[in-house]
Amino acid sequence: MTADVPTLLLMIIVTSLVTSGALLVLNGNQRNDGLQYWAGGLLLSALAHALLLLYGRIPYLLAIVLGNALLSSALASFWLAVRRFHGLALHWARTLALLAAIALLMWLLQHQFASRVVIMGLILGLQAALVLWVLRQRALGAEQQRSRGALLLVCGLGLIVLTMLLRAGAALFFSLNIASILQSNLVQTLTFMVSFLATLVSSFGFVFMAKERADQANLRLASQDPLTGAANRRALMQALETELARASRQHTPLALLMVDIDHFKRVNDHYGHLAGDHVLRHIVGVLRQRLRASDVLGRYGGEEFMLLLPDTDLHGAAQLAEQLRQAVQAAPCEWQGQRIPFTVSIGVAASADTPADPSRTSEALLQAADQALYRAKDDGRNRVALA
Rank of each mutant, 00 (worst) to 15 (best):
Q145I: 06
L132A: 07
C155D: 08
L53M: 15
A150C: 09
V154R: 15
G302N: 05
A352V: 11
D4V: 04
F174M: 11
G316I: 02
S180Y: 03
L166F: 13
D33Y: 07
N268F: 04
L105P: 01
L287C: 13
A89Y: 08
H111T: 15
A81F: 06
V161E: 01
A97D: 07
V14A: 14
I346H: 05
L80W: 10
I178C: 07
Q319L: 15
N382D: 15
R383F: 02
V207E: 07
M258C: 04
T228W: 04
R281T: 11
S195G: 15
V194S: 14
R83I: 03
V14F: 14
L62M: 13
G272F: 01
N185Q: 02
V207F: 12
S72F: 06
M164Q: 14
K265T: 05
R233I: 01
L309K: 01
F192S: 00
M258I: 13
L9D: 01
R299C: 07
A356H: 14
T191N: 13
R246V: 05
R167A: 00
H315M: 14
G41T: 08
A76E: 10
K265V: 02
Y55D: 13
A142H: 12
M209L: 11
F174K: 10
P253N: 05
R83S: 02
H273P: 07
I12T: 14
L23H: 03
A327G: 04
V161L: 03
G34Y: 06
L280W: 09
R339C: 11
S147V: 07
P355M: 05
I261A: 08
F113E: 09
G276Y: 02
Y37G: 02
A3I: 05
L165N: 08
D262N: 07
E363T: 13
V284S: 09
A321E: 06
V194K: 02
L104Q: 08
T19R: 10
Q36P: 09
L320H: 05
L132N: 07
R249E: 10
L221K: 12
A214R: 12
L307N: 02
L176Y: 03
R57H: 13
D295T: 00
P310R: 08
R383V: 01
M1R: 12
